[in-house]
């Protein structure tokens, strides 16, 4: 089950699972970009901040798969940029509902299904961000939510024994969020500039996070648990 399955990093993760032969219940609001995924993709229209809606989505596992779930991924989110001076209670609630509460409640609604997993090796992946490890004064809500999510992920590793729980912190990936607020020419320039800041010399393609999730959900990674894994081309440790 993947929340935020319809674009960006979540869509790449969904494509990876479909290519590797999994069946995916994909939560999202707009399924224009998922028509190529075939019969093993089960779209479920869901706003993850609407908790009744989220619970209905999670209960699809009961209805369709006898209550058995192997992997839960929450990749739903948007960039949220507020400074200490322009924050409002509504913006605060929006950010925490979308970026934190949805993960906490999705875990609550899914954990019993994960314990029923056919292969007895269930995994929860929370998509966090290197924003969790940086201090950006104009992104107070985003950073706070993501660092809380990392903590929550660790709390779950101990609190849900038998389920592996890992958070991933992607750095600069070329996703629609990234291109949304810029013209194609600006996007190109920023991509080029970002390459100079990143030791690996480039931004990453969304498919590269699919490769990581594939590894983390396999038996190869069965002893990786309770940690946050950053995939950022080395940017965070070098950024000045």
């Amino acid at each position: 089950m993947i929340a935020g399955a319809t674009s960006g990093i979540g869509l790449s993760i969904t494509e990876m699972f479909i290519n590797e032969g999994a069946t995916v219940i994909g939560l999202g609001r707009n399924f224009e970009n998922t028509t190529h995924l075939g019969d093993h993709f089960i779209p479920f229209k869901c706003d993850v901040t609407d908790l009744d809606n989220l619970q209905q989505a999670c209960d699809k596992v009961k209805e369709l798969f006898d209550g058995k779930l192997d992997v839960m991924v929450n990749s739903a989110g948007v960039g949220i940029h507020y400074s200490p001076t322009n924050i409002t209670p509504d913006k605060f609630d929006f950010a925490f509902n979308l970026l934190l509460k949805s993960s906490i409640m999705m875990t609550k609604y899914c954990y019993e299904y994960l314990y029923n997993a056919e292969h007895k090796a269930p995994v929860i992946i929370h998509i966090s961000s290197i924003g969790a490890r940086t201090i950006v004064s104009n992104d107070i809500l985003y950073g706070m939510c993501k660092s809380s999510l990392n903590l929550y992920s660790k709390q779950c590793a101990g609190g849900l024994p038998g389920i592996r729980v890992v958070s991933l912190s992607p750095g600069p990936f070329i996703t629609p969020i990234f291109a949304k607020s810029r013209s194609p020419e600006e996007t190109k320039q920023v991509i080029q500039y970002m390459g100079t800041l990143i030791p690996s010399g480039r931004m990453a393609e969304p498919s590269e996070i699919g490769d990581l999730v594939s590894f983390l959900c396999s038996s190869e990674a069965s002893y990786i648990n309770g940690c946050d894994i950053s995939i950022d081309g080395g940017m965070l440790t070098q950024h000045s």
Partner: peptide
């Protein structure tokens, strides 16, 4: 995984494999 091309965007990363013992 880290030697393989599948991890080509990993750089300067410190990755635990400890079952959560130290990380939690």
């Amino acid at each position: 995984f880290l030697a393989d091309e599948l991890s080509k965007f990993f750089n300067s990363a410190l990755i635990p494999v400890d079952g959560g013992y130290y990380t939690t």
